[in-house]
Design a protein around this nucleic acid. Structure first.
Lengths: 338, 338
DNA sequence: ACAAAAGATGAAATCGTTTACAACAGATTT
DNA sequence: AAATCTGTTGTAAACGATTTCATCTTTTGT
């Protein structure tokens, strides 16, 4: 049969028309006559022709794919976001390339490389730890920040992190906690900062004071949550409730304190952030702040596609709502019960 | 400065050489004279030239990327595998495209589409639920099966699932369990079948018998694990230990029974499969069978790249070792202790 | 019935590379 | 001194599509 895959030339020959007509039949069928359209389509079927996207892309000066640049690909937080992105990119005939920023030695150089390589029509950047100037490159494609963001006025999609943190604190205060601690993300990260400031605002709104020895530095990982728990255990005067800036840290924290014989929520209340899938199945199920990850992925892709279609480097920013998910890891403090 | 990005023509003009020489300087520097090489490189620097990969790919009849086809992109199990793949593909100048198979209506059609679209130089398929003939397409690129597999002699990478299951059962039997149950994956899945057969072989090796009412159908998800737990709770004559075919199901199962007041491991021992990150932080930490996901990703990419370089549709298969990870979710049964 | 508009098609240029081939210089062999 | 070889470079033809422009029919309007 066909040694090689058929080209548009083959189709044209079989259909008895020019390559221009074949191309038109496939891209804007309305402009070709009905009879020729049928001839072309049956020739396509006969030859098994598939459009060569590389050639098409070259001629049309595009690449047919977008890149999702993630801090760390191994982080399962992003898988659902990728799924959301994929669900809008696939119908738009765009491929989804993935790569991570924190893998090599120089993240900014890696970003610059992707921006200039011309491998993608657009880029979704999930890493906010770049210097603002890192995007000042001639001829770069549109970039959308997602989840994290950085200085400048880049279009972005994110949740209201401060508000989420405030909701967490509010709930803890409402059930009677006066001694509330916090486990933060890594220093310098925007999510760390906004969630911390939301935490503090929540405290002051409830007439509480932040205590420096009650905020524990972490890095969003489970291990860092466990490490924070060990510092909490070593305290003489412990907070009775904790807001962790990520579910992963909450998991690590809760596991470590339970291991030490502390009961959650009887002895300690914990609230997480993200609502990753697993936390609903923990014992106790974790109370947390939900980030709608699928929605974030979908909207990120949609916003980026809009920018690509408009040929614009700028675009709107969007913030999607977080949601408080009450479960079983929060209870009134002992004092309030006793 | 530069309105558009510089092309090889621009570099050639600036360096005072032909485009052929520029191309050679960049691809095989050894064949051009030292002096011209310098001239070209400085012209490259001056113009800020970046090779246009689309044009290059078209000419070289390749695409510069590979696709990872995953059953469900939202499944975090794969994120670490992707990270492993990325770490070998990036240095090889190959992009990593991701897509899922179970999202649309017809997974096989979707697979065929990817195979014929010419969007990738190779494909790693993580979904074994395809009919063996689904790959009989003319001119398709090399395909490597990973984790799952299907009939035929496709090159593949996977773990020894049966052996892993057998290790789990052996450990449970060794600590004294005689009543061991199993939560399976979805019907028809190769992992379901091999892990089930390993489970059964483990039982018979220890002189135990499989009981039909002690194997619970699941689908690898946490929810299905919780559902299985509810069936287990309804039993009059319960097994004292359970081997779950995935960590996710083990998490769901454990959460549900704990919620019902059952203590793990005192009342019930549980072993999982996969060793996903979170299980080390559960209470109790989950005993499980480790699949080296990063290694799987790395080797998958390496094997595929070998096939691509060799231009061959066939290649070796590899099975990587599983590892038994003892933690805290297994204890001798009550009878053996009392 | 004639001009003008509309509709359908094809010829050929173009996108930006890579590479087979030819050409040429200088060095080496006979 | 002619012939051969080696090393370096340029010319030009691909790769496979899309799209501008021109051409040739048909309709339509007056």
């Amino acid at each position: 049969m066909d040694r090689k895959t058929a080209t548009i030339q083959d189709v044209a020959r079989v259909a008895g028309v020019s390559t221009a007509t074949v191309s038109r039949t496939l891209s804007k069928p309305s402009v070709v006559a009905e009879s020729t359209r049928e001839a072309v389509l049956s020739a396509v079927a006969e030859t098994g022709y598939r459009i060569n996207s590389t050639a098409s892309n070259l001629r049309r000066q595009r690449t047919g794919s977008v890149i999702a640049l993630i801090p760390n690909l191994a982080n399962p937080f992003f898988s659902q976001i990728l799924a959301g992105m994929s669900s809008v990119l696939a119908p738009a005939q765009l491929g989804l390339l993935v790569a991570d920023t924190q893998t090599g030695t120089d993240p900014e150089a890696r970003l610059a490389d992707f921006l200039q390589s011309g491998q993608a029509d657009g880029l979704v950047l999930f890493d906010g730890t770049m210097s603002p100037g890192a995007l000042d490159l001639p001829g770069r494609p549109p970039v959308l920040m997602a989840c994290e963001w950085m200085g400048g006025d880049l279009p972005s999609i994110r949740v209201d992190n401060a508000r989420g943190a405030e909701m967490a604190v509010a709930h803890l205060a409402d059930v009677g906690h006066r001694a509330i601690g916090h486990v933060t993300g890594p220093p310098g990260n925007v999510l760390t900062e906004t969630r911390l400031s939301g935490f503090q605002r929540g405290l002051t709104r409830h007439g509480l004071q932040a205590r420096a020895d009650w905020v524990f530095g972490g890095d969003f990982s489970m291990d860092s949550g466990a490490a924070a728990a060990r510092r909490w255990l070593a305290l003489d005067d412990r907070p009775t409730a904790l807001f962790c800036a990520s579910d992963e840290m909450a998991i690590g924290f809760m596991g470590a304190v339970q291991h030490a014989g502390i009961r959650v929520p009887e002895d300690l209340s914990i609230v997480g952030f993200d609502n990753i899938d697993v936390v609903a199945h923990l014992t106790p199920a974790l109370t947390t702040i939900r980030q709608p990850r699928t929605v974030i992925g979908v909207r990120a892709a949609e916003l980026l596609v809009d920018m690509i279609d408009a040929g614009s480097l700028t675009g709107p920013s969007e913030v999607v709502e977080v949601e408080f998910i009450p479960r079983k890891s929060v209870a009134p403090p002992r004092a309030a019960r006793g």
